[in-house]
Design a protein around this nucleic acid. Sequence first.
RNA 1: GCUCCAGUGGCGGAAUCGGUAGACGCGUUGGACUUAAAAUCCAAUCGGGGUUCUCCCUCGGUGCCAGUUCAAGUCUGGCCUGGAGCACCA
Length: 835
Amino acid sequence: MKESYFPQEIEKKWQAVWEENKAFHTPNSSDKPKYYALSMFPYPSGKLHMGHVRNYTITDVIARFKKMQGFNVLHPIGWDSFGLPAENAAMQHGADPAKWTDENIAYMTKQLKMLGLSYDWEREVTTCKPDYYKWTQWLFIQLFKKGLAYKKEAAVNWCEHCGTVLANEQVIDGKCWRCDNVVEKKYLSQWFFKITDYAERLLEDLNKLDGWGDNVKTMQANWIGKSNGAILRFKVKEVEGLEVPVYTTRPDTVHGITYLVVAPEYKDIEKLTTPDNKEAVEKYRANARKMSEIERLSTDRVKTGVPLGTHCINPFTGEEFPLWTADYALVEYGTGAVMAVPAHDTRDFDFAKKYNLPVKVVIQNPDTPSECKDSAYTEEGVLVNSNEFNGMKNTDAKQAITQKAVDGGFGEFKTQYRLRDWLISRQRYWGAPIPIVYCDKCGIVPEKEENLPVMLPTDVDFSVVGKSPITTSKTFEETTCPICGGKAKREMDTMDTFVCSSWYYLRYSDPKNDTLPFSKELVDKWLPVDQYVGGIEHAILHLLYSRFFTKALKDLGLLSFDEPFKNLLTQGMVLKDGSKMSKSKGNTVDPDEIFENYGADTARLFILSDSPPARDFDWSDAGVEGCYKFLNRVWRLVSDNQKYLTKDYKLTFPLSRENDDLVRTVHMAIKGITNDISNDFQFNTVISKYRELTNAIYDWRGGKCRGKCKDGNNTLTDEDQNVLSFAIISLIKLMAPVTVHMSEEIWHDLGFEGSVHDSKWCEWDDNLAKASKITLVVQINGKVKDKIEADEGVNDEELKAIALASEKIKELTAGKEIVKTIVVPKKLVNIVIRG
RNA sequence: GCUCCAGUGGCGGAAUCGGUAGACGCGUUGGACUUAAAAUCCAAUCGGGGUUCUCCCUCGGUGCCAGUUCAAGUCUGGCCUGGAGCACCA
């Protein structure tokens, strides 16, 4: 064994050996229980960043730990390789997106291997390869056949900069998630997945996800946005047979309606507008169209609107009230029309004040009854001015009033969701083509399954502006109808990359299958994912879509489970100097540099060491240095003592006092580290325990020297050597999931055959995983007054006696009345005194 | 506005159940080794006060104010601050 630690040499060596031996290949059949550890697969942008390093290190440590614990571990990796950056690179440098992507994948693969990650490379999937997107297309067709993929003309989010539409989930604060450009509304005919059919199940099944953080679950629940209310229909006075339905969560306030608002895009708005008002309404609608989403949705904007000139009749009171259009009503939500009760809704109140509309109180504010001057009263209360419902609590009235509407045939109970269908068409080239053909005779027809994949054309011009490069292909659009064989045209849009990433974790179970996306047997064997690790930025996007896919595929009979990810760990960001590492801020750290200067083991150790995985992690150069020093310290511990170490150590009890203490320290470390990993993967405390154990071995060693170490004399007895061997071998194994190369190197230097990563995880003995002495804390009235060393085995009565026998305690309790004494076993005695 | 998460030394953070607050590390300071430096090793490191002054005593301290309890970083109620998500969603 070398005297000094040369990580680069060691790491290269073992990476080659592991690759040669296919050390991390996972067989499908095994008598061990399965464990599926998964990182969110990367977009091949060019180089790994520290966020990747953190993500993959966390998952890798989990995978290796589980493997040592006796699981058959599936730990795969792949590439989310469709998407705009490849296309942009193509436009800017004239590169082929496929080539650009391949080169990036090659480079990043090299980096992943340098990090020492235990991936089964035989299961690698790449979403932009025909053997993958064939099945993305196949799945699209299955969803289409089930009615879950459909095309409709709708107001959609358009990013001019990216030249494509976006899903609702990809619009962040009114801006494009990718380029930050302000998103516009456009009316286009687009493909959607009917995720709204699954709204209730997606919400309900969040309850099953005990292994997910509450933050992610609430974000999804908010996004789905369930509310319970009623649809109420109002007859229009001026137009025979026309009704305006509204959705409300406050049917209890129906007697307080003083006007009604429809969205500017409301479908019947023209019928509802009288000739006198037509010009003003048209102008208002034209203006609303022009406004950006941000302007329109801004909550601090002053509300505007115009009257339509028509009226509705309130079936509860017989009163007439006017119809208005205002852009605070949203056409996509509910019915696109809102009943306005200014007395009990802040928005309606503002609007009513501005346009001098009446305010009618129907819920009594206990503080200022029958008045509503300065603001709406939105709290609970008792109904007034509401005919037979007067005196009823408003919470009860919701039910009773809706029931009356149901009985009268002008309303019903209604559950409403905020979630919208998932828009999956993209007017871009670098994506999976939507496998649909338009035939004049047969209509919208899916491509025949045997003709899949619908290949991306390569005869395209990337320099075109204002349209998708795919439209420049001379070979792509013209095709024949799969039904009638006549001339037909292909769909020119490709799929959102989030479609590709909604099922990749299923493909890993059976990545080479060329007759199906995956066999049911294998997908049911490996899934659900036992531990998923990735960034919080996917809390809604990818994680919601994947849940939807899993449920839809279950309904199609392709698999048998309905949640894909049993446990989810959302790791925090990697910061430097307090802010997120980013190229624009210039505070990035290049993983390659760290590998080169310190080695991957130091990088892995450091990125886990300072913060728990879910929290943000502040990168510091001093911290890296500290971890490197620690590894050197461990290395020296082994190399300085190598001549005393034996892999076939044997402990014979009883041991000498110091040896017994060290053995106990090792058992405590094993227990603590195992528990810390098992309990939410607290790697930061795991690493502090590596250090504690290392320090303890050094201290023990120092105690054995008694100043004689330098002369090189063997001062260790047989027992000492066995104990030291036990301690060091345990440390090396405990560290193996983190410092994968160093542990492997030392393992072999100690003469072991095979890989440390195939060895069995250390076990502890509960009798030994505790100190032989305890420190008894003696409190008086809850304040610590004395600490006394006592034997581990003493019972409560004895503890009490020991405490009362203390000179200090005697002094402090002299002349006082002892009211009671509380004993916490093996820990503490609290004496309560008075006077 | 609503929802969720967090708040502990100079810093990152520890503290299964309510039971010794500050593990472990970074940084800092002092020392050893060295011609010197690096590396390494040893020691100190929450604050105030006291003292027979390197040994010890004492008081205070986990965002703020209350409460429950023998005992609160931990539980309850009310605030404050920061972060994240949602937001004219009727």
